[in-house]
Amino acid sequence: MSDKNRSLGRFLKKVFFVDLIQGLAITLPYTFSKTITLRYPDDEKWIPYKRFRGLHTLNKNKDGKELCVGCELCQKACPTQCITVIPGEDKTGKGISDRIGYRWEIDLLRCMYCGLCEDACPTEALKLGREYELAGFSVQRQIRTKDELLNPQEIPVDFEGGVIVKARLVTDDKGIKVKADMSVQKKWW
């Protein structure tokens, strides 16, 4: 009897298109639900967490002195040999000791953002920051030097991250940047 009932139920289900209507009932609410699209370059931008490994930054201490002492350990640690460090003597008190990185260059085309240089650094001068828009119009531009890396990045170091902020796309001869407006924040989801 129950078997007969079940087959009757299945037949009725087919006759009244129950499965098909259930399918339509699933897609209809989705039509009006909130989308999960991140409108990245135009409107919104994802701010990564602190652990993110992006473009390198060279830190300074509280007094504004360069922490890099030109020890070349990052150069040694680098698996792709994209870091070039030439140490130099400096008595002007730019750095924390009289030895500083005279030249400190990174070839971003070869860097794979493994973070080994960061681990190797004894003075915590080197840190992989949170900038990830590295597209540019020239190969030359992809070799970043010390002067540039010493400038603080757009996202503050103590900012927690993991949010979406308002942003706008800026294209200039330096490359493509998405300027973030940190004041308008949105939680993911």
Partner: peptide, 14 residues
């Protein structure tokens, strides 16, 4: 647009 919204996307926006 209908395709986009059913698939929780936005469809053409730019």
């Amino acid at each position: 647009k209908v395709a986009g919204h059913i698939q929780v996307r936005l469809g053409p926006m730019r």
